[in-house]
Amino acid sequence: MSCAEILEAVARGRADDPSVANHLAVCPDCRARAESARALGRYLADPVMWEEPSPVLADRVLSAIDTESGRKDRPPRWWKLAGAVAVLCALVAGGWTWANRPDWTVELAPGPSAPQAGGVVKGWNQPHGTRMVLEVWGLDPADDGSYYELWLTAPDGRHVSAGTFRDSGRFEVVAGVRRSDFPRIWVTLEPADDDPGPTSRTVLDLPDA
């Protein structure tokens, strides 16, 4: 066996095989590299080396960056335009109104920190998360050093941030969780600090929250 084959055998947990052990006994170079080969073998047997993120995650990342950058209408490339036309035709043929209808809509009531505010969230359930369009009115522009943040919260108190914004308006956001698991939707005014959780400054919330 060559040194490369010996190291592969070590990585596969066969260091005690007589032929491998004999080689290691007389080859200082392989002995020096054996621990690295064992570590590589352990990593290659680890599921995290093979698990794939969901295929829609790339679109969620793009959407989140678009939302952050405040981009609304990006000029499509010609082939995307052609695809969009085809999809539009299909939607018209199949009933656009039905196809575009959100899976759910909730109204948000003003919270103690913004009694004049209001909002509506429309949501589309997707295989690996939720796409939402949030319309907010009556909020003052956030001061420098603060921003508004949309949260989804589970019954056990876990929070997931669905996006941030700085003023009233219409925003599209995507969250990597299902609304059925995270039923509460609410908005807080957040200081720009390192605390990843919501503060107690609620500006919008479900009426029955």
Binding site: V48, E51, P53, S54, V61, V174, G176
Partner: peptide, 24 residues
């Protein structure tokens, strides 16, 4: 990114959240 998030947190949903937030 997904691999280190999955290794450290042990949860696919949270790991995907880490991927999204990392690129943002």
């Amino acid at each position: 990114v997904f691999a280190i998030a999955l290794r450290s947190l042990g949860d696919r949903v949270l790991a995907e959240e880490v991927v999204q937030q990392t690129f943002v």
